[in-house]
């Protein structure tokens, strides 16, 4: 009994430390007072003015565009890459996987600076360079999500489809795709969160004029803290939370449904 209470308490403390800063942020975003130390009553004003702020809204729009475009393109490229890698021989596979994983391990700031150096050589920094950068760093996450699915779905089902007269494309669409779809989906979700999350790489590749929410927040914070930014951060937090839940809960629900369907059949 005591042990159980202690372990509960321990858990509670850990989560408290993890989430306390965010909870403070969320509370402050509803605080009707300009100072951080006084509670001036509940208000939604900061949210209202946040949505009326032109700078914030344009950054918001850019973020949405970058996030979705980069997620879609990196999912496409990453999935094709995973298919290619899975068809390679063992040794080649290790080499290529190692190569794609290096950007994951690399410090963001190094990736950001090196991309900037590369981009300024060929084009002006701006929307396109940020997009390309986001696609680049998202691809490894997609590969990491798709590749295990490809490995789990054994090659013989694909060959069986060919054997039954399916063309390679039809066989892929009918047999391989349904099995890797959850991986592609979670890779897509991962790409979205990574893109939303990124600050350093965007900061170095964005050039003047273009701002995503995170870089905009950074520049605004340098000028002084506005309560609108609390509201914005809260929205961002919940957006990411929602996407993560979507990515984690949906596949599980599906699996559960499949399971219960099977039990009904038996």
């Amino acid at each position: 009994m005591v042990k159980k209470c202690a372990s509960r308490l321990y858990m509670f403390l850990i989560f408290l430390f993890l989430y306390l800063p965010i909870i403070v942020l969320i509370i402050l975003s509803f605080n009707n007072s300009k100072t951080r130390v006084v509670w001036g009553g509940f208000t939604l004003d900061w949210y209202k003015s946040c949505f009326q702020d032109e700078k914030i809204m344009s950054a918001f729009l850019t973020t949405i565009q970058i996030t979705f475009l980069s997620a879609i393109l990196s999912t496409l490229i990453g999935t094709l890459a995973a298919i290619g890698i899975s068809a390679m021989k063992k040794r080649q596979q290790t080499i290529y996987l190692g190569a794609t994983n290096i950007p994951l391990l690399n410090a963001d700031i190094v990736t950001g600076i090196s991309m900037m150096l590369l981009f300024v050589k060929f084009m002006d920094l701006g929307f396109v360079t940020v997009l390309v950068a986001h696609i680049t760093f998202s691809i490894p996450y997609v590969i990491l999500n798709v590749l295990p699915k490809l490995k789990a779905c054994n090659r013989s089902t694909y060959e069986a489809a060919l054997d039954l007269g399916a063309s390679p494309l039809y066989a892929f669409y009918k047999v391989t795709w349904p099995e890797i779809r959850p991986g592609v989906f979670s890779g897509f979700m991962m790409a979205i969160t990574m893109s939303l999350d990124d600050f350093s790489i965007t900061y170095f590749t964005k050039g003047p004029g273009v701002n995503t929410l995170s870089t905009m927040l950074y520049t605004e914070l340098k000028k002084g803290i506005k309560p609108e930014l609390y509201a914005l951060s809260t929205i961002l937090f919940f957006a990411v939370l929602f996407i993560l839940l979507l990515g984690n809960v949906l596949p599980q629900k599906k699996a559960q449904r499949a399971l219960s369907k099977q039990q009904k059949d038996l």
Binding site: C153, N154, S156, T157, E159, A160, A161, D163, L164, E179
Partner: peptide, 11 residues
């Protein structure tokens, strides 16, 4: 047509 050594039904 082939019946494969490994199970190869479409799951």
């Amino acid at each position: 047509n082939t019946v494969f050594q490994k199970y190869s039904l479409f799951p």
